[in-house]
């Protein structure tokens, strides 16, 4: 068995059929499909039972475990070398499994790969997730670079390090796990739309209250990364960091905050330079990206992002170097 596809489901009678069919119709056929039912109270079970396919395995939980717990049940029961995730309301395009498996088999240093995503149901967008491994690792400091429904990973990495979805980070458990995994292998996204992600207003991440909670849990992950950079943020710094995070939807008066944001980014840049956690070039780029999107979100593109703090240092360094060479030339 090469790949286990895991669909956790709780009261998903409306869309689970589409999700199952999107997997059964894959061009790659050697998989098992684990559907973990988290005590649904609607007709989910009867919808699943309609599909007579020996590759489908339905697992019913005794009690409601929540999304992270259900996903862990999936990991425990998976037989495959790879694990592919799909949520019960999302859809995989017909070449997804094959393209991901081919990529992972041909590139053994990679342990996790997602895909680009198109959103359906509400506003339609294409999320062009990052593809550069180091850049993804750096950007994980700010946000999750993978859509869970598009992720395929090597099971070996989970079992070797005893990684599971952390029950203490509900709604950010995927972010947490992908971040942990990214320390052990290269990660990427296939630059092709292979997953449809359904947006609807009932989704847990949508209400303002839930958003605030998610921000807190995501912050816990970010705090861990910051600590590995030897940064122990205080309250003010936390506030600033959360404002930089894309899609944070926090109100931010950019003109007033800019000095602090500069200061914070500069600190991040120097600390990383000291402990070499991330490659310099990509870390800089991820900082730049965040600053840029922050500026463009508040409709002030040019003046600030072209004066990003750490860039100045670079120019100074080159200037010094030229001076040094010139001096040595004069001396000789």
């Amino acid at each position: 068995m090469l790949v286990s596809v895991i669909i956790p489901v709780y009261n998903g009678e409306k869309y689970i059929g589409e999700a199952i069919e999107s997997i059964l119709n894959q061009t790659f056929r050697d998989f098992e499909l684990l559907i973990i039912n988290d005590c649904s109270t609607d007709k989910t079970v009867s919808v699943v039972n309609k599909y007579k396919d020996t590759r489908i395995k339905l697992i019913n939980n005794d009690k409601n475990l929540g999304l992270a717990g259900v996903r862990n049940v999936g990991i425990d029961n998976a037989q495959g070398k790879y694990i592919a995730w799909l949520d019960s309301d999302d859809i995989s395009l017909h070449t997804r499994l094959e393209k991901q498996i081919n990529f992972l088999e041909n590139n053994p240093s990679f342990g996790l790969c997602g895909t680009w995503v198109k959103t359906i149901g509400g506003t339609q967008q294409v999320w062009k997730c990052l593809t550069h491994s180091e850049l993804i690792k750096s950007t994980m400091l700010f946000n999750n670079c993978f859509a869970t429904s598009s992720v395929m990973l090597k099971k070996e990495i989970l079992t070797k390090n005893r990684y599971l979805f952390d029950l203490d980070y509900p709604t950010a458990e995927d972010y947490d796990l992908w971040e942990k995994i990214s320390h052990h292998c290269e990660v990427t996204n296939i630059p092709e739309v292979l997953t449809y992600y359904r947006v609807h207003t009932l989704q847990t991440t949508f209400s303002e209250e839930a958003r605030k909670k998610q921000r807190e849990f995501a912050w816990n992950v970010q705090k861990r990364i910051l600590q590995s950079l030897n940064i122990f943020p205080n309250e003010k710094e936390k506030e600033i960091h959360l404002k930089i995070v894309p899609q944070s939807n926090l109100e931010c008066d950019i003109h007033e905050e800019m000095p602090y944001i500069y200061e914070w980014l500069e600190k991040l840049y120097f600390k990383n330079g000291e402990c070499k956690q991330f490659t310099d070039r990509e870390f800089k780029k991820s900082l730049d990206n965040n600053l840029y999107s922050l500026c463009s979100a508040s409709k002030m593109v040019l003046p600030y992002c072209h004066r990003s703090p750490y860039r100045v240092i670079d120019v100074r360094f080159i200037y010094r170097l030229i001076k040094l060479i010139a001096k040595s030339l004069v001396k000789s």
Binding site: F103, Q124, H132, E134, T188
Partner: peptide, 17 residues
């Protein structure tokens, strides 16, 4: 390490909704 294996299809990167 980028995704060097696949050609980056312009049409996919241009693709929008």
């Amino acid at each position: 390490r980028m995704f060097l294996d696949e050609p980056d299809f312009l049409d996919d990167s241009k693709a929008s909704m």
